[in-house]
C-alpha cells in the first residue's frame, strides 16, 4: 500500500465500516452514508413509486431502518445491496400498486417471442434518444421489471448485489433482468409505433 492509498483509505471508510459505526451510535457515520447513497436510493424509490413525495418518505424510512438495524449487518455481501434491500421494504410499505398495471403473469416470458417484439429481425434500428419517452416506458413496465432495471441498469448494482437485494439466486436474477430488458425494448418500439 502506498502512502496515497493509505491516505484515501483513512479518508473514505467503507460502507460496511460506516454501518458498524452507526451501530455504535456514531451520528456522523449515518450522515456520511446518507450523502453517499441518497441520490441512488431516491431515484430507485421514485422509479418504483412514481411519486416524489412517496419516494422521499421511503428514503427517510430507509435511513431510519439503517439506524435501527445497522447492528444486524454482518458483512455478508455488499453494504450497498443491504441498503437497497431496506429501501425495497420501505417502498413496499409506502407504495400503492397502480390499478391496471400489468402483472408479470400477463405478459409473455418466452425469450424468443420477446425478442421478436423487441425488434429482432427488424431492418430499422431502435431509437432510445427521447428521455421523456424512456421515462414513460419504464413507468409502464411491471414492478418486477422496473425494479430489476432500476437496480442493475440505472443504479449500476452488480448482478451479485442485485440478486442479494431481491433475495434471488444470480441465475434467476439474470433471467429476470434479461426479460425485463427485452420488454423495455419491446415497449419502446410499441411507443414509437403509437407516436
Amino acid at each position: 500500500m502506498t502512502v496515497d492509498e493509505l491516505h484515501v483509505t483513512t479518508l473514505e471508510p467503507t460502507d460496511a465500516a460506516l454501518l458498524a459505526r452507526v451501530a455504535a451510535s456514531d451520528g456522523p457515520a449515518l450522515g456520511e452514508l446518507v450523502r453517499r447513497h441518497w441520490a441512488g436510493l431516491f431515484r430507485f424509490a421514485r422509479r418504483m413509486t412514481r411519486d416524489d413525495a412517496t419516494a422521499e418518505d421511503a428514503l427517510q424510512d430507509t435511513f431510519l431502518a439503517v439506524l435501527q438495524h445497522a447492528a444486524t449487518f454482518r458483512g455478508e455481501g455488499s453494504a450497498r445491496a443491504w441498503l437497497y434491500t431496506l429501501a425495497r421494504h420501505a417502498i413496499q410499505r409506502r407504495a400503492r400498486r397502480r390499478v391496471g398495471e400489468p402483472s408479470p403473469s400477463e405478459v409473455t416470458d418466452d425469450v424468443e417471442l420477446l425478442g421478436a417484439s423487441a425488434g429482432f429481425g427488424c431492418a430499422d434500428a431502435a431509437t432510445f434518444e427521447d428521455r421523456e419517452e424512456i421515462e414513460r416506458v419504464l413507468d409502464r413496465l411491471s414492478d418486477e421489471d422496473r425494479e430489476v432495471l432500476a437496480l442493475v441498469d440505472a443504479e449500476g448494482l452488480s448482478i451479485e448485489e442485485a440478486a442479494r437485494s431481491l433475495t434471488l439466486g444470480e441465475a434467476a436474477l439474470k433471467s429476470r433482468l434479461h426479460r425485463a430488458r427485452l420488454r423495455f425494448m419491446a415497449a419502446m418500439r410499441a411507443m414509437g409505433g403509437d407516436a
Binding site: G119, A125, D153, M188
Partner: peptide, 20 residues
C-alpha cells in the same frame, strides 16, 4: 443489429438516472 440495439437500450436506461 439487435445486439447493438440491446446495448443502446441498456445505456439509455443508465442515462435516464439523472441526479435528483
Amino acid at each position: 443489429r439487435f445486439g447493438a440495439d440491446f446495448a443502446r437500450a441498456i445505456r439509455a436506461i443508465r442515462a435516464s438516472a439523472e441526479p435528483p
